[in-house]
Design a protein around this nucleic acid. Structure first.
Length: 567
RNA sequence: GGCCCCAUCGUCUAGCCCGGUCUAGGACACCUCCCUUUCACGGAGGUAACGAGGGUUCAAAUCCCUCUGGGGUCACCA
């Protein structure tokens, strides 16, 4: 590039600069991942900066909740807000801070003063109403609104503004010339003269706008490469102009396409609300299910599409309505039992590929191979089904020990009730019984909720598959036994059986050979219904072991009673 | 609407820069069959794309133009 550029051999510095948020969106996660991989793969630094120049947005401790998501993904930053990682290490810090823009006001003011002194910036006193009028006038002429210098206010005006308590903003005097937007992903493009107007660089509250803060901080934090969402593409022209006026270096830019839903809509937290609203409508609910959200919350939420339920409330409601909330944030995927390394792998594949038909790789590989030259220009649709397939593969590739360790860690956070209910031995048994059929870390728990039910209250599902297993309403040849008959017949032998895998299997085989034409399934399915309430469970002998002898017998009795009442 | 960007199977993508090796490759999904005590796993096959129209060329997914479609941006939000 030009003489102001960093020497090519100095290690790159990238940055992820989100506005305050408690959660990390998958799109943001991908941006962070690419920034991280680029810098770390080249011996450089990865910086995190919080863009909190909008005072309307909160900046409390919860506002950097997304840091834990980054850390969980294995993305660590060399500089930025400090964070105490679960492993005891401290992430962040650095000598180019503060890393919260709201703490850098003096710095911005210094550079704004420089711009004013050189005539590149000026005060503007327009009221929102006046600006609105200008906008409307432009619209009437079918032109895009571009603010231009409107002259100094008269003494009378100044007196009036003072009396009104009106405060000025500071605007940048944009050069009237075409601007080249540098971009290593989309290619450099030229914006025609006049496209960039005299944009605001300091708001009336004294805070800089995004455009100004970003340019100052990237320079001061010696950022060499800026990778960010494509929505910033056109904004880059403003940043370039600012850099020139301030005498700053110019980073290399790369704009990343957005990630969309499969239905082409933009992925957003709203999607969760949409699913819930739909379920509420379909199930014709008029009041919140017990223990989900308060009547008040419910009412205000339903009153307006603009209102969103709290995350906790949404989760409880989704459970009550038996609907699956779409995962949007990194934490959602974590809760659903996805592995961080799989998320990173999959995210990287949305918008980048290493070529040679390579799909499965880890962050070290990404670090070594990532480059802007293979970044996609087109927006990608986020395919949760393929993500699940990737996660399944990774789960299958795990050793039994790793599977147990990771499931236990997952349960400790998201499924504590299982740890409380199951003994060490039972937990191990459950792990062994579920590993090969688990697609996520959550699946051993999610699909075995029947284990948490008491023997006295386990509900039996009345559906087609259950009726078929028990032989309810089936027309049989004389002498043939239904599933329910098998249950009755096996009850007493089961009561005397040693409660081990081998003994149970032996007993069932012997019984099946004698009474079910050797078809073990004819016996296994009714048993499954009896102990789990449905026709789906882990392998039947494991399931019986898990439920225990007395539990099995009790459930069996209750199931027989229940089934006799069906007919 | 002005300005800018983009365009390969349903989806993520390889190939495109350096035209022939592309009767367009992989993965997920889907369909068929096999395995099977449920669910899932696994195994074997299969369907499926260069948005349209013009050029350039002996030859175009690959280069050029137009159209169409999609996206971004036009805030005292970031």
């Amino acid at each position: 590039m030009d003489s102001k550029s960093e020497p090519v051999n100095s290690p790159p510095v990238t940055r992820f600069a989100p506005s305050p948020s408690g959660h990390l969106h998958v799109g943001g996660a991908r941006t962070a991942l690419f920034c991280w991989a680029f810098a770390k793969g080249r011996g450089g630094k990865f910086v995190i900066r919080i863009e909190d120049t909008d005072q309307k947005r909160s900046s409390d401790a919860a506002s950097v909740g997304f840091l834990k998501d980054l850390e969980w993904l294995g993305i660590r930053w060399d500089e930025g807000p400090t964070y105490n990682a679960p492993d005891g290490s401290v992430v962040g810090g650095g000598e180019y801070g503060p890393y919260f823009q709201s703490e850098r006001l003096e710095i911005y003011n210094h550079h704004i003063a420089r711009l004013q002194a050189s005539g590149d910036a000026y005060e503007a006193w327009d009221s929102p109403e006046e600006l609105e009028a200008l906008r409307k006038a432009s619209l009437a002429r079918k032109e895009a609104f571009r603010y231009r210098y409107r002259g100094e206010p008269s003494d009378a005006d100044r007196a009036r503004f003072a009396a009104e308590g009106r405060l000025p903003v500071i605007r940048f005097r944009s050069k009237l010339a075409s601007v080249t937007i540098p971009d290593e992903v989309l290619g450099h493009t030229v914006l025609p003269e006049g496209e960039v107007d005299d944009f605001v660089i300091r708001k009336k509250d004294g805070f800089p706008t995004y455009h100004f803060a970003v340019v100052v901080d990237d320079e001061l934090m010696r950022v060499s490469h800026v990778f960010r969402a494509q929505e910033h593409f056109t904004n880059t022209a403003k940043h370039v102009l600012l850099q020139d006026a301030l005498g700053f270096r110019r980073p290399v830019y790369g704009h990343l396409s957005i990630i969309k839903n499969p239905d082409d809509s933009k992925m957003s937290k709203r999607d969760k609300d949409k699913v819930l609203r739909k379920a509420v409508r379909e199930q014709a609910l008029t009041a919140p299910p017990l223990g989900t959200v308060t009547d008040e919350e419910w009412a205000t939420w339903l009153a307006s599409d603009a209102v969103q339920l709290s995350l906790e409330g949404a989760i409880r409601l989704a459970e009550a309505l038996r609907v699956q909330l779409p995962e949007i944030n990194v934490d959602d995927f974590r809760r659903s039992g996805y592995l961080p390394e799989v998320i990173c792998n999959f995210l990287a594949l949305n918008g980048w590929s290493p070529g040679h038909d390579i799909e499965k790789f880890d962050n070290d590989f990404l670090k070594a191979r990532f480059g802007l030259d293979r970044v996609m220009k087109t927006p990608a649709k986020f395919d949760r089904v393929k993500l699940l397939a990737f996660n399944t593969d990774a789960m299958n590739a795990m050793s039994h020990e790793e599977f147990v360790t990771r499931c236990r860690a997952h349960a400790a956070i998201f499924r504590p009730e299982f740890l409380a209910r199951l003994t060490q031995a039972q937990f191990a048994l459950l792990m062994g019984a579920t590993k090969e059929r688990s697609k996520t870390l959550d699946e051993p728990f999610k699909s075995n909720a029947f284990l948490l039910e008491s023997d006295e209250s386990l509900p039996f599902t009345d559906d087609k598959s259950v009726r078929k297993a028990l032989g309810i309403g089936a027309a049989l040849e004389s002498g043939a036994r239904t599933g329910l008959d098998h249950l009755r017949a096996m009850r007493s032998t089961l009561a005397e059986c040693e409660w081990t895998h081998a003994a149970l299997e032996h007993l069932a085989n012997a019984y099946a050979n004698e009474h079910a034409g050797g078809k073990i399934g004819a016996v296994a399915q009714p048993l499954r219904v009896a102990v789990s309430g449905t026709t789906v469970s882990p392998p039947i002998w494991d399931t019986l072991l898990l439920v225990g002898k007395s539990g099995t017998l009790r459930r069996l009795d209750r199931c027989i009673d229940w089934a006799e009442g069906l007919r």
